[in-house]
Amino acid sequence: MPLEEALEIAQAFLQKVYKYNDYTFVMLPELSQEYRKFWTVRFDTQEHIDTGDMTKAPMVRLLVVPKDGSSPLWPPSARPTSDFIAKLDAEP
């Protein structure tokens, strides 16, 4: 799966999850990373970018987009994201 497709999937997922919020999502492809079985997609909101107000964006601004077409995942916020990504990447 190319990055462009992962970004589209992430955007659609965010629009669905936050359909009752007035967020304008901005994908950050330059901060996204490819792994064997998934992409990590970074994003923000235009409202947060413009104001710096942390309440104008989701607390976690990273999605894991599996290349197999399954639903995107949020990394847990209770442990380091790098640990979660390493564990996912090590799975067979």
Rank of each mutant, 00 (worst) to 15 (best):
K16E: 14
E91K: 13
V26S: 00
T55Y: 10
M59W: 10
T81N: 04
G52I: 06
F84C: 04
F38Y: 07
S77G: 06
T55F: 08
A57T: 08
P58R: 02
I49N: 06
K16T: 13
D83F: 10
T81G: 04
F13A: 01
R61T: 07
L7W: 05
V41S: 02
T45Q: 03
G52W: 09
Y23P: 00
R42C: 06
I85W: 03
E34H: 05
V26W: 00
T51M: 07
P29R: 09
A86D: 15
Q15V: 01
L7R: 04
S70Q: 13
S71R: 14
V64H: 00
M59L: 14
N21V: 03
T40C: 07
A78S: 12
D53W: 09
M1I: 11
D22F: 06
Y23M: 02
A57R: 15
L88P: 03
V26T: 05
T51V: 07
F84W: 15
W39D: 00
S82F: 07
A6K: 05
V41G: 02
V17I: 13
Y18M: 05
E8W: 02
K19T: 05
G69Q: 08
R36G: 05
I49L: 14
A6G: 12
E30S: 12
P76Q: 05
E30Q: 14
E30M: 08
A90H: 11
M59F: 11
E91Y: 11
P75D: 07
Y20T: 14
S82V: 13
D50L: 09
P72C: 08
F25R: 04
I49T: 13
S70W: 07
G69L: 09
F38C: 01
Q33K: 15
A86F: 04
Y20I: 04
W74L: 12
Y23T: 00
E4I: 10
D22W: 04
E47G: 02
Q46R: 15
K67E: 10
R79E: 10
S70E: 15
M1Y: 09
W39P: 01
L3Q: 14
L73T: 02
E5H: 12
S32A: 13
T40Y: 04
Q11L: 14
T51D: 08
K87C: 01
L63N: 03
F13H: 15
V65E: 01
F25G: 03
F43V: 15
D83E: 12
K37E: 11
G52Y: 12
S71K: 14
E91F: 12
K19N: 13
E30C: 03
E8S: 12
K19R: 14
S77T: 09
T51F: 06
L3H: 06
K16G: 05
A12P: 02
M27T: 03
Y20S: 10
E34Q: 13
L63H: 03
F13G: 00
E5C: 02
V64R: 00
D83V: 11
E8H: 08
D53P: 07
K56L: 15
A90K: 12
A78D: 15
K87P: 00
E5A: 08
E5Q: 14
E8A: 12
L73Q: 09
T40V: 14
L7C: 05
N21M: 06
E34C: 07
S77M: 09
Y20L: 06
V60M: 13
S82E: 14
F25V: 04
P72L: 09
L62M: 15
Q15G: 03
V65Y: 02
K87L: 10
A57V: 08
W39N: 01
R61C: 02
F38W: 04
L28S: 03
P66S: 11
E4P: 00
T24R: 09
W74M: 12
